[in-house]
Amino acid sequence: MARDLAIDLGTANTLVYMKGRGIVLNEPSVIAVNRQTGEVLATGREAWQMIGRTPGYIVAVRPLRGGAITDFEITERMIRLLLQRVGVSRFTRPKVVICVPSAITEVERRAVTDAARRAGAADAQLIEQPMAAAIGADLPIDEPIGNMVIDIGGGTSESAVISLGGIVALEAVRVGSFDIDASIQAYVRREHGIAIGERTAEEVKVAIGSAAETEDESQAEVRGRDLMTGLPRTVVLTPEEVRVAIDDTLSSIIDSIKRCLAKAPPELAQDFLVRGMYLVGGGGLLRGLPQRIEKETNVPVRMSNMPLEAVVMGAGHCIEHYDALKTMFMGARR
């Protein structure tokens, strides 16, 4: 018997919720391909470990990295493998609800649903990511109240105002936590003359990254390749340096939050002052970020209790109540 599925196809992480079962898969959205034969060599965590460490004939990529689908074929294969791994085949034919970044185009959406159908889904529907996030974060979106949710993922940041079961205002930018990693990489290259990898930059961000001064200001040793000599070298980074490095990226994320606030109708805007905005997504875990957003917008920020799972839990709710929530699927509207 087929069990219906909800998928959070994130730029950084993919999660799958199975109807009646809960979250059955949670892994990086990475696929490793043999460049010469075109074969898929690994997906998920295994492929993630290959990033930046592959011999020339292998590429390990995040197909949704920038919140857009750059390679349709690879994305399709990733979706098919994903569905196969959770037991979908032409014989089981489950219904599938998929959350994608709201920034993706009509053509990209079609590519995602087609891939799911070709992999054996009887029906594949998309829902807007901030909507799923708000459901998963347990906001009272069924009421006539302004609910604001901010989802900072790897490649995208999306803010939305939701009231009476629908999106009132939405603002999505293709800037996210990957860009914070990239600014750390660029800073270390510029100021210390060493090249570091994407994964090392992410480790620095998680270890000592912050959006505002924190109590624990411990430093981190970073290893990379000296740009002049080409030899491995270690430098010490302070949290203050990292703050300088990532400031511009954080500002563009916060600016998009402000634009979303500005789009909200006044009746709902006043609710934010009392109820605050809810932060979800891995990017929101950066130390001091809630405080920084609060300071710049004058609106209280609350951290959702399951920031990394909120979207898939919301999508899971939609698969549990498929018929009642059909109207929410993208493309259901004309």
Partner: peptide, 21 residues
């Protein structure tokens, strides 16, 4: 139906399913 399905009582189900798993 849509609004009722989004109420917090109805949403408790998903969390329970997941906690059990």
């Amino acid at each position: 139906k849509h609004i009722d399905a989004l109420s917090s009582e109805s949403r408790r189900g998903v969390r329970e399913v997941n906690d059990r798993q």
